[in-house]
């Protein structure tokens, strides 16, 4: 096999870049706009939608992370994750390739989760507590428990990234098989069902599941 260091960009990475550009423009505009808003008035239109989304998210996450310090540390990261994933997973409706159907994009999510977990541990718990949790409650079993716990540290983010990848990939494969079998005319009718199920429903569920698992594992990592 041959690898080029700088090859042509794969379609999944291209659509990732497009989504990142669009989302950053939207949210930078919203962030600049929200500073100029009059707090006494009800916001309208675009800002009303943005504020509703953020407010709903804050209320939902507050039910799971009541602690104020942890909340203000986790909420921006988790909000970025869920917004990006929700847009990325439905992006194949707009003619882009689903970014998570490329394992490179999915594994970058695992790496992000891994780094975020380590940052959380350094920020919220001491090194001594972390070592104690690695050794486990029984000190005699330490030579057995330490490798198992270290594998556990890596396998959680890895399985989270892999879950995203396989769910989106299986949807893409089934869709392409059905389109290949039916041709363009049958595809017109089958596409309604396929994209409703695989892109909208499974995509949004996977985005939500990734967000919830990140929430759970982050709050567990901060308390261990």
């Amino acid at each position: 096999m041959q690898f080029d260091l700088i090859g042509p960009i794969s379609p999944a990475v291209f659509s990732t870049l497009v989504i990142i550009a669009i989302l950053s423009v939207i949210f930078i505009i919203a962030g600049l706009w929200v500073k100029k808003l009059d707090p006494a008035k009800t916001p309208k239109g675009f800002m009303f939608i943005m504020i509703t989304i953020v407010d709903f998210f804050n209320k939902f996450l507050g039910g799971y992370i009541p602690d104020k310090k942890r909340f203000s540390f986790f909420a921006p990261y988790l909000f970025t994750i869920i917004i990006f994933l929700a847009v990325a997973n439905v992006s194949s409706l707009f003619g882009l390739t689903a970014p998570l159907s490329n394992i490179g994009v999915a594994m970058s999510f695992s790496i992000m989760t891994f780094i975020m977990l380590r940052i959380t541990e350094f920020k919220f718990i001491s090194i001594k507590d972390k070592l104690n949790s690695l050794i486990g409650p029984v000190k005699v079993l330490a030579p057995i428990m330490i490798p198992i716990n270290l594998i556990g540290e890596f396998s959680t983010p890895f399985s989270m990234g892999l879950r995203l990848f396989v769910n989106l990939l299986s949807g893409a494969i089934i869709a392409s098989i059905v389109y290949g079998l039916l041709g363009w005319f049958g595809g017109l009718f089958a596409g309604v069902l396929l994209h409703a199920v695989f892109d909208i429903f499974f995509g949004l569920v996977q985005a939500f599941v990734f967000f919830m698992l990140s929430t759970v594992s982050l709050s567990m990592a901060s308390e261990a």
Binding site: S159, L162, R163, L213
Partner: peptide, 23 residues
């Protein structure tokens, strides 16, 4: 509903590993 979705997604992982190997 939230708890069910999350736990089912965790339970799904082993099946997905099989699917990865098949793919």
């Amino acid at each position: 509903l939230v708890t069910t979705l999350v736990t089912q997604a965790v339970a799904e992982t082993t099946g997905l590993y099989g699917l990865v190997i098949a793919i």
